[in-house]
Amino acid sequence: MISYIIRRLLYAIPILIGVNIITFILFFVVNSPDHMAISQLGEKHTTPEQIEEWKRERGYHLPLLVNETETGIEKLTETIFFQKSIKLFVFDFGNSDSGRNIGYDISNRMWPSLAIAVPNLILGLLVTITLALIIAFFRATYIDYWAVVICVALMSISALFYIIGGQFVIGKLLQVVPISGYDTGLEAIKFLILPVIIGVVGGIGSGTRWYRTIFLEEINKDYVRTARSKGLSEQLVLFRHVLRNALIPILTGVVVVLPMLFMGSLLVESFFGIPGLGSYTIDAINSQDFAIVRSMVYLGSVLYIIGLILTDISYTLVDPRIRLN
């Protein structure tokens, strides 16, 4: 087991190197820092001196891979690749193009993101799994048929509609909760209600349908027939036998997204003005702050890989077939 985890961790290293190289190529090779400077400073009336200064302030004046002007190890360290890409490995994100410390911003902004994402995930799971169980109970009836049609209709609605519509109806017309904003401490709750509700409702369609498929796949297996042949009631069959097996794919599917919760939701956060990592990313994209985008790409990859590793580990913990082999 431990050697398995170590192996998975070792496997993560080349992937992170790959991510680093891809982002390096995207951000510094395909487009040179000069391009960035020009687009930041405005195309016209920029003198080469201004560009040079802009680059120097942000450390983009260094050569890409090899610094011929330095000697010794600094030949390699005084380069963009080392300063901007290698340092990511130790989570040294440096400063954003507007001069703020990215690491500090991230550690501050992940809490509001979690404050939305965690209740959203938990409530969403509860609602969708319950609905899916009910539909599975009524499988092959008209209830099932129409429930699936409704799910398909719900998942055909754009996420933007849920957000704009929810904000309009609940926030503006009914004025139950504030439309947007954020506060510290318990005061934050009233700002979280609407985004969480919208997040849960928006996920009902696809979630319910997905879990229904998992349940039905299990229900058609032979062991369920065995359970019925013992004379167990349908509820007992569903809860004791089907749910227990279906929880394995459900749980591992949840584990894989757990680390990604830190990243926050781009849409919800920016619509509701919540100062999390999602809106941080969007703001960075809109102001073309490549330093932040690059840091978020790296952070996202790390979290994704952690998710993969956690999934593998959770499989071995939950499934006796893997645990005991």
Partner: peptide, 29 residues
């Protein structure tokens, strides 16, 4: 497998954002 795990591990929206920003800069230049 390495290729697609690496690509997959980069958050899709961010990869799209980065690429589109770069295209934008390229086109304006």
């Amino acid at each position: 497998q390495y290729l697609y795990t690496t690509l997959n591990s980069i958050p899709g929206v961010l990869l799209i954002a980065a690429s589109i920003l770069l295209v934008q800069i390229y086109m304006s230049n």
